[in-house]
Write a protein that binds this DNA or RNA. Structure first.
Lengths: 229, 229
DNA sequence: ACCTGAACACCGTTCAAGT
DNA sequence: ACCTGAACACCGTTCAAGT
């Protein structure tokens, strides 16, 4: 089911500057390797990314991959690089600084949640900070506008972005749980608060959970008014 | 450097009910397998747990492991089971319900942080809820004492324990980062708030970060006074 | 009941060799 | 500059066979 389009298949214009004619060759670029790897990880998770499967997908021998990216570890680094670049920039929207900060955090969350396997990878490699960068830049300006700067601003930024990744990671983990274990299933059912047990047995509402935590953080860290001048 | 104490070595009393005499045998129990696996993971991380290394450590052939635990996946499940059991129970201490809840969360955090590789494993397998169980039981009682019950209590419990695991997971990830990438290193140094950039370049103070988030959550979710009766 | 050894399919990686 | 094939050490797992 693989190794299909190995020979020929000259998609793309033939390069005029080559002594070609015989076999267009269309060499696999480093870029193509990274891109295909990204697709594999997004679609089937990190375990699906084996050097051999990747080379199959590209229609080359395994060893060709090594020429382009060095080894698997370097390839994973390249994936995170690209993911970080893909995060792009953000604009804040909302009436007050607090609303704008809230909406920034929500946007980042959605963006991360769209590519769960890849942010899982970034997490494993301790490179989540790079994912925050774009939002933090904008958020810093918002904080400054209400008088939060310096070390306080750094703390607030970290608290909020930590909350975002934490939420995404845990939601992802919950999704991966085979039997979807919830705390409620483990509680004694003869307790004094059956409504609590029932609520814990139900699947977590991650949207609400995220919102509650975010609200609490914003309340604690972002003042309502700009400071008196 | 392994496969050392293979034959003989009859540690533990010889069983009197056996037809033995010739070779004490001391069979490897399922319990011993799980225990050794746990040690391996705690000491060297999940990747160090290969079936072959494990069997070496136990002084048996690889295939013997399979007889005791089925396969690697089942073994990992057994590890998480044991971890959950090891979490034990907790007592809350403090003057008010708020203080007791705060100290419970802090205790859970420390307990999880002591075994980073194992809770990483539990996380990967979507089984963190079981780690919370003991604390949540006690915390539910504290919440009830200030009038928080039912669905509200469930939300509060989840918000707090999510914050705890999230913190631990991210701290662990930061520790695993090779070059300890911090957001500050990526910011332009010609910004308008050099103190902010400097603070972001410094390593994260996870204790403080945790405390700030926890405080915000407790403020938002746990009332100061018990409700009027 | 408990363990071994051979065997299989699958990894990542190196290297000499080809064009 | 780019790719191949053979080879190596290491995985998890199955199975028939031993005691």
């Amino acid at each position: 089911m693989s190794a299909a389009l190995r020979p020929g298949a000259p998609s793309g214009a033939p390069r005029p500057d080559a002594e070609a004619i015989v076999a267009p060759r269309v060499p696999v670029s480093r870029d193509a390797v990274v891109q295909t790897a990204m697709r594999l990880v997004e679609a089937h998770g990190i375990d699906a990314l084996t050097m051999r499967r990747l080379s199959d997908e590209l229609g080359v021998a395994v060893t060709a991959i090594y020429w382009h990216v060095g080894n698997r570890d370097a390839l994973l680094d390249a994936l995170v690089d690209r993911l970080a670049a893909d995060m792009g920039t953000l604009r804040s929207s909302g009436a007050s600084a607090r609303e704008r900060i809230t909406s920034l955090a929500e946007t980042l969350r959605v963006r991360l949640r769209d590519r769960p396997h890849l942010i899982g990878l970034a997490h494993e490699r301790g490179r989540t900070p790079e994912m925050f960068l774009p939002v933090e830049q904008v958020m810093a300006a918002e904080l400054a506008s209400v008088g939060v700067q310096g070390k306080d601003a750094a703390l607030a930024l970290r608290a909020i972005s930590t909350h975002v990744v934490g939420s995404v990671l845990l939601e992802r983990a919950a999704g991966r749980s085979s039997s979807a274990v919830n705390a409620g299933d483990l509680w004694p059912t003869d307790g004094e608060d059956p409504e609590l047990v029932e609520a814990l047995a139900a699947p977590t509402d991650f949207d609400r959970l995220f919102a509650v935590g975010l609200n609490a953080l914003v309340d604690a860290l972002v003042p309502r008014e700009p400071p008196p001048r």
